[in-house]
Amino acid sequence: MLIYLGRRLNLLVITLLILCIASYILAFLVPGDPLINLSGNPSPSADQSAQLRLMYALDQGYVAGFWQYLKLTLAGNWGLSLTSQNPVFQDILQFLPASLELSFYAMLISLLVGLPLGIMAGLKHRKFADMGILSVSLMGFSVPVFWLALLLILIFALQWGMLPISGRLSLLYEVPHQSGFMLIDILLADISDKSAVLNDAIRHLVLPTLSLSIVTSALVIRLTRRSVINVMSSDYIKAAYAKGLSHAQVFWRHGMKNALLPIMPQLAMQFTVLLTNAMIIEVIFSWPGIGEWLIQAIYQRDFPAIRGGMLAVSSLVVIFTIAVDIIIRLIYPLSKRQFHAQV
C-alpha cells in the first residue's frame, strides 16, 4: 500500500510540475512581453519593471526564472488580471466553487439516474427495457450540450416561464460570499427569508444542472450497462446460481460489487468531461463560474488570467483523478494487483 501511495503521489507531483512548466512556457509563447504576461501589470514604470524582473528572476536564465515562478505560484501569487487588475488567484478562488457546485450536482443527478437505469438495462439484456433505455441514452449522448441548453431555456424559461433564464440568484437577494457554494452560503448566511432565497437559488440551478446531467447520465448508463452485462455472464455468477442462491442474493452479493467497482475510475473520469461541458453551459446561462471567467479572459487576451485558469482547472482534474484512484484502491481488492497508474 505504501509503495502504491508513493507511486501515486509521485505521479501527482510530477504531473503538477509539468503543468507548472507548461504554464510558465505559455507566458513566453503568447504575444507580448513575458514580464507583463507573468505579472499582469500592463504598463509598469521603469522602477516597477526592474523590481518585477528581479522578482521573477527573468535575467538569470529560464531555470532560475522557473524556480522563482514555482515559489510564487505555490505562495498563491499568480499575478494580476490584465483587465480587472484583481489578483488572479483570488478571482479563481471566487469563481471556481460556482463551477464545482454546478458540476457536483450534475454528477450527483447523473449517478442517481444513470446507475439504476444502467443496471436495469444490463439485467434485462436484449429485452424491451434494455432497448428502450439504450436508445434514450443514445439520444441523450448525441445531443450537443449548448443546443440542449438553448432548447431548455426556450421551452422552460421563455415559453412556460417556469424557471429563470440565467444567473445564479435573483438580483433581489444578496448572499455574502463565504465558501463559494451557493446553497451552503445561503444556509450559513445570516439573512431574513432564508427559505425564499434557497428556493430561488434552487430554481436557478435546475436548468443548467439538467442540461449538464443529460449527457453524463447517458454515458453513465452505457458504462454501467456494459459492465453489468459482462459480470452477469461471468463464471462466478453462474457458480453462485449453481450454489442455489436466489436472483436477488446473487445480484446484491456478487453482481453489484463486481460490476460497479471496476467502472468507478471511468465514472470519476466523467467528472472531468462534466467540468468542460460546464464551461459551455456557464456561458449560456451567465453562470458566474470559472468557465465563463476563462472565456471572457480569452476574449480579452488576458494572458495572466488564461494561464492561471488553465493551471487551476487542470490541477483540479489531476488531483481529483488521483484521489479517486486511491479511494478505489482502498475498497476494491482486485485492484491491489496493479502497481502502475492507468489512464
Binding site: D235, K257, N258, P333
Partner: peptide, 12 residues
C-alpha cells in the same frame, strides 16, 4: 465447476 479462478467471486 471447472476452473476455480473464474468461478470464485474476485471481490469477496
Amino acid at each position: 465447476l471447472q476452473n476455480p479462478t473464474t468461478t470464485l467471486d474476485p471481490s469477496a
